[in-house]
Simulated assay, not measured.
Amino acid sequence: MLLLPLLLAACAQTPEVTAPAPTATTAATNPAPQTGTELLSRYHWQLTNAIDSNGTHIDALFARPDRPVQLDFSPYRITVVNSCNNMGAGYTVRKGHLQIGPMVSTMMACQDPSLAALDDAISQRVRGSVTVNLLARDNAPSLQLVTDSGDTLSFTGVPTAETRYGGPGQIAFLEVAPQSVPCNNPLMPNAQCLLVRERFFDEQGLASGAPGPWQPLNQTIEGYTHTPGIRNVVRVKRFTLKNPPADGPATAYVLDLIVESEKVGQ
């Protein structure tokens, strides 16, 4: 079982930000554009195209067609998602350039050679100083990174849960039982629901207090796929819906992290 820290401390100072000037089209549809770091942190940036200085497609960056490389930005940190290893680095945005610090990565062996090559291809390009072009469109903002060697990486923005639900949400921990249970769901006859109970942890990431009661969760957890026979403790973000449907839940749960995972015998 693996228990990760609850919080990631940030000690860097607020970066100086200079966002690229909006085009006429952008200004017309977005009369009050956000600053660069605000826009970066409001989206998951999924890689859609990558070419080198000769115009050749960089195949190594597309080892997982169904799970594209994704960049997530917090105010001080960039995280690479859908690589083999977990990867991240500190960053600032200064005068049209993304300044990326040393990339920190887990050391998990990638048995698939294409995934090992994917990690190398990412770490070679998401580092140092890269030119950043950020265009804010209403439906799908775009991000373009150009490395010193002339490689161009193009990303499309997918709204984060905070953007979709209009707020930061509340952090909660749920223990998910190995087996689902029958439950009442007005939208799904004969429904099977996750059986969950709330868990509590202190600032050091240690379990504290008594768990809540077991009860069916009559809705899904966005981003979570349950495997029968596996007990998980998950960290979720819980959002209050501003306009919930009449026959639906008033909250939404979004997976943030799998904290513990254990195979339970039948």
Rank of each mutant, 00 (worst) to 15 (best):
His97Tyr: 11
Leu98Pro: 15
Leu98His: 10
Leu98Gln: 11
Gln99Gly: 09
Ile100Lys: 12
Pro102Trp: 00
Met103Arg: 04
Met103Thr: 06
Met103Gly: 07
Met103Phe: 05
Met103His: 03
Met103Asn: 07
Val104Gly: 07
Ser105Ile: 02
Thr106Leu: 07
Thr106Pro: 01
Thr106Gly: 06
Thr106Phe: 05
Thr106Met: 08
Met107Val: 09
Met108Ser: 10
Met108Thr: 11
Met108Asn: 12
Ala109Met: 05
Ala109Ile: 05
Cys110Gln: 06
Asp112Pro: 14
Asp112Ile: 14
Asp112His: 14
Pro113Gly: 03
Pro113Glu: 00
Ser114Lys: 10
Ser114Glu: 03
Leu115Tyr: 06
Leu115Trp: 07
Ala116Pro: 03
Ala116Glu: 11
Ala116Gly: 09
Ala116Trp: 02
Asp119Ile: 03
Asp119Gln: 07
Ala121Phe: 01
Ile122Glu: 12
Ser123Thr: 13
Ser123Leu: 13
Gln124Arg: 11
Gln124Ala: 11
Gln124Glu: 13
Gln124Thr: 08
Gln124Cys: 11
Arg125Gln: 04
Arg125Tyr: 02
Arg125Asp: 05
Val126Trp: 12
Val126Ala: 07
Val126Ile: 15
Arg127Ala: 06
Arg127Leu: 00
Gly128Glu: 08
Gly128Lys: 00
Ser129Pro: 00
Thr131Asp: 02
Thr131Leu: 02
Thr131Met: 02
Val132Trp: 04
Val132His: 08
Leu134Pro: 15
Leu135Glu: 10
Leu135Lys: 10
Leu135Val: 12
Ala136Gly: 09
Arg137Tyr: 05
Asp138Gln: 13
Asp138Ile: 14
Asp138Ala: 13
Asn139Ser: 10
Asn139Glu: 12
Ala140Glu: 07
Pro141Ser: 08
Pro141Gln: 08
Ser142Ile: 06
Ser142Pro: 00
Leu143Glu: 11
Leu143Thr: 06
Gln144Cys: 13
Gln144Ile: 10
Val146Ser: 15
Val146Ala: 15
Thr147Ser: 15
Thr147Ile: 00
Thr147Met: 10
Thr147Cys: 14
Asp148Gln: 03
Gly150Thr: 00
Gly150Val: 00
Gly150Asn: 02
Asp151Pro: 09
Asp151Ala: 15
Asp151Phe: 00
Thr152Lys: 06
Thr152Tyr: 04
Thr152Arg: 06
Leu153Glu: 14
Ser154Leu: 12
Ser154Ile: 04
Ser154Val: 08
Phe155Ala: 06
Phe155Ser: 11
Thr156His: 05
Thr156Gly: 05
Thr156Trp: 00
Gly157Asp: 07
Pro159Gln: 03
Pro159Trp: 03
Pro159Ser: 04
Pro159Asn: 04
Pro159Cys: 03
Thr160Gly: 13
Thr160Tyr: 10
Thr160Ile: 08
Ala161Asn: 15
Ala161Arg: 09
Ala161Met: 13
Ala161His: 10
Glu162Thr: 13
Thr163Asp: 00
Thr163Leu: 02
Thr163Glu: 01
Thr163Tyr: 02
Arg164Met: 14
Arg164Asn: 12
Arg164Thr: 14
Tyr165Ser: 02
Tyr165Gly: 01
Tyr165Leu: 07
Gly166Trp: 12
Gly166Thr: 15
Gly166Gln: 15
Gly166Asn: 14
Gly167Ser: 10
Pro168Tyr: 01
Pro168Gln: 10
Pro168Met: 04
Gly169Leu: 06
Gly169Arg: 05
Gly169Tyr: 01
